[in-house]
Design a protein around this nucleic acid. Structure first.
Lengths: 324, 324
DNA sequence: TTGTAAGCGTTATCAT
DNA sequence: ATGATAACGCTTACAA
């Protein structure tokens, strides 16, 4: 361990450059307010001394904390790998601007303690609206919603539209949607992308909904196996569902991808664990995390101004569960 | 959004209680130094005003940052769900003590910027030793090592010993170990637990090592299928390997768990995705994270004093891939 | 444009 | 045991 020699402060730089502390502060925060000559002197001194601003002091003076609270409200008994990627993105985006984060899973701890400069909320359901409204600092949401909150999400509709169009292009005759039985925006959008695309081809949609567990979709396909004609593609609202469908098809001796196809949604971890690996709508999860951080930081800089919504295009990753 | 009324400070509490700021500060940090009567007065005032200490000011006065950097050095292209649980544990442990965290994956960014009060390092390999040595603040490691660093890990040896003993107790005749071909402490320990237990029963160990990918173990079992007698249990150094073994057995028409058994290691996410679900050595990952936070916080409080090593017992979770 | 002074909320130090 | 004062490193407000 290297023990910290004397920390270099604004005063040190000021002395070195023969100016006042304020001039140094201005060079850093409002460089346009200082003459080029002085600016140069100060910048040289900063480099010479390897000055690193003390973010804690800065935070105190600005009445900030430099901390963003990230709430994951969804139940993660299953430890969704999804959130790992998201968190990495968020952490990366925050780190760059000198913010640290506090991870919160307990709703009660969200507004407790040394509150934060802002909040990123994920996995929120309708019943969390009062909680979100009660937050005292700028907040952005991960996941589409129609409550007027600033949010970022994958373009879910586009995702299933891509998948459905691809299934049709690959000449699968029957295209069935396996959805999640929750009344949430993202699910409606995923179904809409499927429905719209089919209707453009004058085909009647077939949707089945169930809990988001591989064994449920597996059981569903098993139970109805004889009803599925050959040349069917299952479009699933999650990779979890897709993996169950895939297993059931294999169990029943169905040929993937010639007679049956499966397309998942998410593209995080599970799709690669499947065998064969899933064709899936891959969400740019880490990028979404970075965008969340960026949006929140900007919102903070603009004293909480509305940021609107941002839908990011997913990518259809073509693999073993659909025809070439 | 609720805009913060005037923040309650030490001074406010002091005024309310008719004491000096210092007395209030002492009640909070060194309560033994203040008389019971005053202490009571101050505590009442704190409650009456709902005083929350400003951690930023505290940090400045103490020359702290209230930030812990968490380094995940392992390549996580595959987004190991493992780290999600660990991070949750760490975050929970830190949060309770008012620390925030910064997630670092880029080695170069570890010591950059407004450095932290301490470091938690995971996924470190031998080549990272210089990096760890260069850290300027108290550090604890996740993962066993013999370089003298304070660390916390699952008791790997105990884990595979449990698994092996269980396989023998369930009367599997042949017990084969599928290991990971890395020269790391954790792998040696896992192999040792297996070897020791077999030797106690005068049985000769059989170990095969490969990369930690399900398709590699799957290929291995496929390629050698005819060499495996019935009544064989495969003890795997990871759930990833186990899932590949399981798939290969099913592909070859082997009966699980009557003729062939599989025991994994980790117990994070993958074990439940498998079908049938894996019997596995479950690491208490989230708890490990909390312990890491706790150890580091204590180390900081003790000005960096050595904390030693801590091995936590895993649990054998009995499921579908072994006999009842 | 630049500098001076005061203040952010806390704690350490030294008196009393 | 309690209190007054200075200090942590920075920024805002005002003066020059």
């Amino acid at each position: 361990m290297i023990e910290g020699a004397h920390m270099v402060t604004l005063s040190d730089v000021a002395k070195q450059a023969n100016v006042s502390k304020m001039t140094v502060s201005r060079v850093i925060n409002h460089p346009e307010q200082v003459t080029p000559e002085l600016k140069q002197l100060v910048e040289d001194a900063i480099i010479a001394l390897n000055y690193q601003p003390n973010s804690v002091a800065k935070a105190l003076a600005n009445n900030r904390t430099n901390v963003i609270k990230v709430a994951i409200l969804e139940d993660i008994d299953t430890t969704e790998p999804y959130y790992m990627s998201l968190l990495f993105g968020v952490a990366k985006g925050l780190d760059r601007k000198g913010y640290a984060l506090q991870l919160v899973t307990d709703r009660a701890r969200l507004s407790v303690g040394n509150v934060a400069d802002g909040f990123i909320v994920t996995g929120a359901r309708s019943e969390d609206i009062p909680l979100i409204d009660s937050l005292s600092q700028p907040t952005v949401i991960f996941g589409e919603n129609h409550n007027g909150y600033d949010f970022i999400d994958t373009d879910n509709k586009e995702g299933t539209a891509l998948a459905t169009a691809y299934a049709l292009a690959k000449s699968y005759q029957s295209v069935i949607f396996i959805g999640i039985d929750v009344k949430e925006s993202f699910e409606y959008s995923r179904e809409a992308g499927y429905i719209n695309t089919l209707q453009q081809h004058k085909i009647v949609p077939k949707i089945h909904r169930m809990g988001n567990h591989s064994h449920q979709s597996q059981a569903f396909v098993n139970d109805n196996w004889r009803k599925f004609a050959r040349n069917t593609c299952f479009i699933c609202a999650s990779d979890r569902l897709a993996i169950g469908v895939e297993r059931a098809i294999i169990q029943n001796g169905g040929n993937i991808p010639n007679d049956f196809a499966v397309i998942g949604f998410d593209g995080v971890f599970l799709d690669q664990v499947a065998n064969p690996q899933l064709t899936t709508v891959k969400q740019p999860v880490q990028k979404l995390g970075e965008l969340l951080a960026r949006m929140l930081i900007q919102k903070i800089a603009q004293s909480g101004a509305q940021q609107g919504e941002l839908l990011v295009s997913p990518e259809l990753v073509k693999r073993g569960t659909t025809r070439n």
